[in-house]
Each structure stands twice: as C-alpha cells, then as structure tokens.
C-alpha cells in the first residue's frame, strides 16, 4: 500500500476515533473539540473528536453578525483562532493536508479509481472555491447569522447526517425535514461526480482548500521542478489528483502536495521539501521564470 493511502487511512481513524459512541450514544464532548484540524471533517460526526475549521469559521462570523448582539469578543477570538490555526499549517506545508489528511479527499481519490469514463474539469473551476469561501463561509453567515456552507456541505451530510440516522443518539432525533433530503441529494450528486472527475469538490468548492491553496505561494514546504531535467512529457499531469501541470507552476494554489508527480516523474525532475539550498529552476526558465513571494 502506498504511503499516502496509509496516511489518509490513519488520519481518517485519528480524526474519528470515538467508537465509544456506539455503546454510549453520546457524542464526544472533550477538550479536543476546541482544536481545529486542517481537514474537512464534520464535527457533527458522532465519531469526530476535533472541530471543523470551516464550521468554526462560519460560527465566528455568525457571532460577529449584526443580528447577534453581545458576542463580539467571542466572535473575534474564534475568528483569530481559526484563521491562525489554519494559516499556521498553510504557512508551513501549504495545501499538503488536502492530499495526506483530509478524509473527504481520500473518499474522492477512492471513488475516482472506479473504472468509468473520465471527465476533465476546466481550470476556471478553481474560482468556485474562492466564491464558496467568501460568500457561503464568510459573508452569508455574517449577514444571516446562519452557517450556510454547513447547511449545504456534503461532508456534513455523509459524516453527520448518514451516521446519525444509522446510529441515532441517546436523545431521540426529530423526523428528518425536507432539508435533510436536499442535503442527501447534494451528497449523492457529488458521490457520482467523484467517480468521473478528479477531486471536483476540492478543486471547485472547498473553502479550506481555498485558504490553504493561497498559502502554497509562500509556504516553507515547496515543490520544485528542475527545468534542465523536465522534458514536459505530461506524466505528472496523468497521475495528478487535481489534474495540474506542476512544471508550469510548482507553487500553484491547486497543488495538494501529494507528491504523486514526484513519484511518477521518469526524469526525477520534481522534488518537494523544506530545504532551500538546492537550486530551483522552473521549466519556463530565464529571468521571467522566478516566482515572487
């Protein structure tokens, strides 16, 4: 089994280890729930022990909302805490958690392996995740004091909705509203899409990917492509889970630092690491090829 698959499996279990729920039917309420993890893992999941950074981000904006009075300090504190913890990870390793930790990314990787005709997404879909971040995760919660991204999020539908329905908590759940079935339909649509396209949710909708992706430009962990060795064979794009040409832009905000390209490159031209000593060259080369901070 590949290292990345093992890491994704371990992360899935590490983020959702509360199997005691099945006997107690009470969700985890320990201190770890105050820790934001750099992955999209719904904290409504009965097995989850950490908090979702995007859910917490929305919560901080609802506290700051003019519709909610008296929670300004808490809202500001939560906002700084969430941005600080996500940004810290981003400044260190960029979008690497998307490739190695995120359980929803893992699900997308698995479903794409089903042998079916594949659809390529246009590059412009990346703007969707910035729109989701700014509008659904920040602006709309601020204006309406409701977590609208969470209300549509397929991760919540899968980890929270499905699991809570299958294993209901001690306190009886009310009957499912129409909204529950809408969420299920969104989840179903995504699950089908995952079989045909490479990580469509990560590329077009994930607000966490948008934040971490922005950090790719300056993170301490960086990808490099040796222009002297690269012959633009395109093998890296074939294996890339987000369908990018790494040699065009090693610091691309789409890159999830999964290092599949590094493994697959027949020339050994691609590398990634924290070191800065080895000379970096881009395939575009020359003076214009350097990438600013």
């Amino acid at each position: 089994m590949r290292k990345r698959t093992i890491s994704q499996l371990v992360a899935l279990l590490a983020l959702n280890p509360y199997f005691a729920y099945f006997s107690s039917r009470v969700t985890y309420g320990g201190d770890l729930k105050g820790v934001c993890i750099p992955g999209l893992n719904c904290y409504a999941c009965p097995l989850a022990v950490f908090s979702c950074p995007i859910g917490s981000l929305q919560h901080s904006f609802t506290l700051l909302s003019p519709r909610v009075k008296g929670y300004l300090a808490e809202g500001l504190g939560a906002l700084l805490y969430v941005l600080g913890s996500v940004g810290l990870v981003g400044a260190l390793v960029g979008r690497m958690p998307c490739g190695w930790i995120c359980p929803f990314g893992f699900l997308q990787d698995l479903l794409y392996r089903i042998p079916l005709p594949k659809l390529r997404l246009p590059r412009g879909v990346r703007w969707g995740r910035y729109a989701a971040l700014v509008f659904l995760a920040m602006l709309v919660p601020f204006l309406t004091a409701r977590n609208w991204f969470s209300r549509l999020c397929p991760v919540g539908a899968l980890e929270g909705g499905v699991l809570l329905k299958l294993a209901p908590p001690q306190d009886p759940l009310p009957p499912a509203a129409w909204f529950f079935w809408l969420k299920m339909a969104i989840l179903g649509g995504f699950l089908i899409w995952f079989m045909f396209s490479k990580r469509p949710f990560c590329r077009a909708f994930c607000p966490l990917g948008a934040v971490l992706g922005l950090c790719n430009r300056f993170s301490l962990y960086r990808m490099t492509v040796d222009g002297a060795l690269c012959n633009s064979c395109g093998r890296c794009r074939e294996v890339c889970p987000v369908d990018i040409d790494i040699f065009e832009d090693p610091g691309s905000p789409d890159c999830i630092r999964c290092l599949e390209c590094k493994r697959a490159c027949p020339q050994g031209a691609i590398s990634g690491g924290f070191r800065g000593g080895r000379e970096e060259r881009r395939v575009s080369g020359g003076c214009g090829g350097s990438q600013g901070g």
Binding site: G34, S51, A73, L80, R151, P169
Partner: peptide, 23 residues
C-alpha cells in the same frame, strides 16, 4: 485569540451537534 477566549468559543460551538445544519 486567547485574550478573547477563541478556543473556548470554538469548543462551545463544536460540542453541540448542529441538527439544523444537518436538516
């Protein structure tokens, strides 16, 4: 964020399963 009890605010939200969000 520690000055304004940021982790506490995140925690107090995270321990409640938002049934509204799940529908």
């Amino acid at each position: 964020s520690l000055l304004w009890e940021g982790p506490r605010a995140v925690y107090s939200h995270a321990v409640i399963v938002c049934l509204d969000c799940i529908g």
